[in-house]
Design a binder for these strands. Structure first.
Lengths: 196, 196, 196, 196
DNA sequence: AATGAATGAGAGTTCATTCAT
DNA sequence: CATGAATGAACTCTCATTCAT
């Protein structure tokens, strides 16, 4: 009482953890709210007391991942004074974060897409948010004279897609290697692509 | 009985067309076999006579798209004698094909991912097939001395991802622009990425 | 095949019979579609193949009763050449029909009212239909000089209500007497009320 | 603590008011205890502190209405020394009371019937109570020689039904007219029906 | 007295799949 | 080959009721 982390918040957190567990094991559509309830040691009604729908749980989870990724990336970029190194840091952080949260990543990159038409808007928003971050970075590079002018809109999308695919492959692979091994070649490729 | 199975093939084709229509409008999970039956002017039993399950229909559709894409890309590459131009041609063909088949594309890049754990293997295969095509191309470029040696495995994945993301964005956008406008900047970026 | 009374119609009829049974025993809201399915020796899906919703089943049942009542009453009135005897005949027929179908009557007069706001319109319509029949009869009596002019709108409603309540009491009573015993006193009362 | 229970009574009253509001808007079955709690600015637990069940709330409401109606009718009859005028006064009072409390009336005449088998007994009791009042009145009329002997049991039920139906129609009508306009024709009809 | 969180038994509805005709 | 009827498991969501605080 009084302190953040009330019982309700704790429950919500437990439910989200359980949902992540369940969704990433069975997929969004094949997961029953009952599964989430059981896994979070609550009852179905308990889940519905805290979330209005199954969809809302998924959305909350997506937000959680986006926040995590975004804040980490921003932080690591801010920590680097050098423009080119900012990009390297962001890439490293992203790969590291993904590698650390394979389940959330699966949710984010795989389940979310096909979960249903209802989520498309949300996913698009998330892609746009990330791409915008990259575009900002590239635009700064152009303005500050680090790189020659280029179509940063497409470039940022392509960068995002490149990382995305590398990670998706790792997520889909049943016997995945070490995701962070991709860092060096990927960095090289991306840098060169913009003429660095 | 004329050509064997010609009538059956026609039916199958009609069903697949209907399935594409339905799946890309409502998503895999939200589409009922009844919808497909109605759209293809058959009955549910009729559909099940030609396909063992809903899943099989989706898989067939995925194959259809992969074949289409692959054969077109191969053909356009074969038509170019010049190594660097082969890549340009393939990219142009891909974008063109996607642009021409927005529904199939949605199925291929969006629905398929979240359709369920059952499809992950298939999707992975398809990604691998495409990436392999790209990798072959890049390897040839290295061997033939067009480009300097590089991690072609990661590079091909990144290329695929870059294109993928550009197309996905276009598919998710409710008021999409012209996909083929992305050709020039994307080409530039990809070429530079490998040092061309 | 070919003859009316196809298998589908038979099934529908069986389902309606079962629904009547179930609804009049447990009430509309306390009846589960599963109960109806079991009672009609079908499955839930079977019921839903023939009816789009539980509500629709109830509505069909209501229509069935209204048709039955209306056609019988009309027929018995038509069979009497004498104006005053037409009314007697209709009243007798109504009481007889209600007495013969206690379950349907319960549905019609008791369950329907509280089944939910969705049914209010329907019930109102049915009340109006019956009242209109009575009003026609009374108006004819006035025109033909059998009775002095009177507010036939209210009178017909009152007549309907009077019969309604007598029947409702009989339906609600757990040890009901003979409904048709009410015929004579009721007839006397109604006739006098309009000055016959 | 002033008058014993005054606070509790106040709460109970607020809950009943809220329940009336909610029940008459959404019907008994479609109303959630939560709705009542919210409307009465309490919590679900609060409601359950004062009432053992949802059913009990409804029953209390029904009693409230019956008491209101009965006491008003009795009072207005007592105020008239003349036997025939007693009946007129009661009818006028009833219509007036119903007209003033459309929500309670809906509850009383519409919702109650179909609320569930559990309430049938109660409703029957209420109908009997009212009919008994009317029967008393009619019997007195017979004994005192105002009217000729008649089957007062059926007559009282018919009277009740006639009024009931007029009011029910008014309640079900979405654009109801003025209920009290029915007073004169109804009075005429009822009086004549018993030979007055 | 009151609150909000939790429970858990259902309810209606959907749908992939099967199969007699 | 095709049809439409039937099956039944599963799913999301609701809600009266309880109870620790």
């Amino acid at each position: 009482m009084g302190v953040t982390g009330s019982k309700a918040e704790h429950r919500i957190s437990k439910i989200l953890d359980a949902a992540l567990e369940v969704f990433s094991h069975k997929g969004y559509r094949d997961s029953a709210v009952d599964d989430i309830a059981t896994t979070s040691q609550t009852s179905k009604g308990g889940v519905y007391f805290h979330f209005p729908s199954k969809q809302a749980i998924f959305l909350a989870l997506l937000d959680r991942m986006a926040d995590l990724l975004l804040s980490r990336a921003s932080k690591s970029m801010a920590a680097e004074p050098d423009w080119p190194k900012k990009g390297d840091a962001a890439l490293a952080t992203m790969l590291h974060t993904f590698a650390d949260h394979r389940n959330l990543t699966r949710l984010f990159l795989v389940e979310a897409l096909g979960a249903g038409r209802e989520f498309n808007q949300k996913i698009l928003e998330m892609h746009i948010t990330f791409t915008a971050l990259i575009k900002d970075y590239l635009d700064t590079g152009v303005v500050d004279g680090y790189i020659a002018p280029l179509e940063t809109r497409i470039a940022s999308i392509a960068w995002f897609g490149a990382v995305n695919e590398v990670v998706t492959r790792w997520v889909l692979d049943e016997e995945p290697g070490n995701l962070e091994d991709a860092y060096n070649p990927l960095r090289e490729l991306l840098r060169r692509g913009i003429g660095l």
